[in-house]
Design a protein around this nucleic acid. Structure first.
Length: 478
RNA sequence: GCCCCCAUCGUCUAGAGGCCUAGGACACUGCCCUUUCAAGGCGGCGGCGCGGAUUCGAAUUCCGCUGGGGGCACCA
């Protein structure tokens, strides 16, 4: 039997990393088993669903490289199917119309709660006579449809990650499956769709575990065999509370905008609740596909550790070629207004690739490139502390003068030659290389920390380098 | 209040009764390399929530407790 799984987000916001992890596990499961992965948009909540959210979710999935074989399907385009199935259930005596008003239900719920009881629908509309029903209708009321749930025995969920979970049917009450306006509710729409779309496995968040016995009952009422279920544990923030916006980044697009690589995020997410063995942490997509299995999925919730993601992102950045890295860096330079589109030509690309090569080991996120290389694109912005610590020291002026003279004499402006010449100069003047180099660094970058000095001088060019050293001399003391 | 899930270093995890003196990775930390910062190399620190039971033997099985999380909607 070929497997079929789905990712079914409700478009009420951006793609959350928890949702991304769910999508990833489904996708990996499909790839691993040679099955199909489909996308379904659960937009039956008209109040909260938005077009922007749909676009954001699709964009994030595409960026992550989680491609789907079928869909996206939209539940709001399938309303006739739910209505038909609901009607069948009513005719079979498995569901019934209910005229109870939402405010009334909420009142009864609060009463039950405050008196220490469990809120359950009391089924008062189940045995409505046709006379009573028409009385409601005469008042202009439209009924919703409730599922008549089993109240004896137990419903067992054989969960692929959690094992056997038993629920007492007496705990479950008659849930609403269709609203008066003809829109289905989640538990019903999900069952109808999973059945209709041929899902063999339902892999979703642990928050859906309590829904599962209800859904299994609906499958039974529809005389259908439920799919296999697998419930993934939650992803928490560093404070162990469910991950949300207040933990900083929780949506996939924020990670993208901060300069995380999708390969790194995928690798990191895969390891949140899954492990292949006792030592492998870096996995290519292909390796993930071949190794992934539900049997190795962890039961306990996982804390999202940004520090580890950062490390992993650095690993992936270091794996890129100079040209690939430069290409990925381009939008960040442009976003920071450092690089006007009209200046991008062959020569500039060569320079960018060189900058990428000298900065690669210093990048955790792609956005780090801005602070690291802005001085190549615009005038030096002197850091006061750097000036005080380095330029305003005895000997700085003399060093810069000697360096300037030496650099002026260089014809072949390359970092190898600059390296040789400046080291020779340090030897001549009998000072430690670092002592000679640091003023140059501050002169050309304005800071005490920069990409490698000789390479930076090369990238800056002879003329600019000399001009900056000249200017820096005015900041020294003599 | 009721139902359900979970529990190994700070974090992600390996571990399916003796291979455990509990392994790896991130973080932290020491040293080395070094023109700054990184990156890299070699070390170190650090854990089975508690209490019972089963067993010759338990991180691993069972029970209780505690702690964390989820759910109890005309939201998904």
């Amino acid at each position: 039997m070929t497997t079929k799984v789905r990712f079914a987000p409700s478009p009420t916001g951006y793609l959350h990393v928890g949702g991304a992890r769910t999508a990833l596990f489904n996708w990996l499961f499909a790839k691993n088993t040679g099955g199909k992965f489909l996308l379904r948009i659960e937009d039956t909540d008209k109040e909260r669903s938005t077009e922007e959210a749909i676009e954001a979710i699709l964009a994030s999935l595409s960026w992550l490289g989680l491609d789907w074989d079928e869909g996206p399907f939209y539940q709001t385009e399938r309303l006739d199917i739910y209505q038909k199935e609901a009607q069948k259930l009513v005719e079979a005596g498995c569901a019934y119309e209910c005229y109870c008003a939402p405010v009334e239900l909420e009142k009864r719920r609060q009463e039950a709660l405050s008196s220490g009881g469990t809120p359950r629908y009391d089924r008062r509309c189940h045995d409505l006579s046709s006379k009573e029903a028409s009385a409601y209708q005469a008042r202009g009321l439209k009924p919703c449809i409730r599922f008549y749930s089993e109240d004896k025995g137990e419903t067992i969920v054989e969960d692929l990650v959690r094992g056997r979970v038993v629920f007492e049917n007496a705990e479950l009450d008659d849930l609403i499956i269709m609203r008066p306006d003809g829109l289905p509710t989640y538990n019903f729409a999900a069952v109808v769709d999973d059945l209709d779309m041929g899902m063999t496995h339902v892999i979703r968040g642990e928050d859906h575990l309590p829904n599962t016995p209800r859904q299994i009952q609906i499958y039974k009422a529809m005389e259908a065999k439920p799919p296999s279920f697998a419930h993934l544990s939650m992803i928490l923030g560093e404070d162990k509370a469910p991950l949300s916006k207040r933990h900083g980044a929780a949506s996939v697009e924020v990670f993208r905008d901060q300069g995380y690589l999708s390969d790194a995020l995928i690798n990191f997410l895969a390891l949140l609740g899954w492990a292949f063995d006792d030592k492998t942490t870096l996995f290519s997509r292909e390796e993930l596909k071949t190794h992934f299995g539900l049997d190795k999925v962890t039961k306990s919730p996982a804390v999202f550790d940004t520090a580890k993601l950062d490390w992993m992102n650095g690993q992936y950045i270091r794996d890129l070629s100079d040209a690939e890295l430069a290409e990925k860096l381009l939008p960040f330079w442009q976003g920071a207004q450092l690089l006007p589109a009209e200046k991008i030509n062959g020569e500039m690309r060569e320079k960018l690739t060189f900058l990428a090569s000298i900065c690669r080991e210093r990048l955790i996120k792609l956005s780090d490139i801005i602070g690291l290389t802005d001085f190549f694109f615009k005038d030096v912005d002197f850091d006061e502390r750097a000036v005080n610590k380095v330029l305003k020291k005895d000997g700085a002026k003399e060093s810069l003068e000697a360096v300037a003279a030496k650099l002026k004499s260089i014809d072949k402006w390359s970092h190898q030659v600059i390296d040789e010449e400046l080291r020779a100069l340090a030897e001549e003047r009998e000072i430690k290389p670092g002592k000679l180099f640091q003023p140059i660094r501050v002169a050309i970058s304005g800071r005490t920390v920069s990409p490698p000095l000789f390479e930076s001088l090369e990238a800056l060019g002879k003329e600019t380098s000399l001009a900056r050293i000249e200017k820096a001399k005015t900041l020294t003391v003599s």
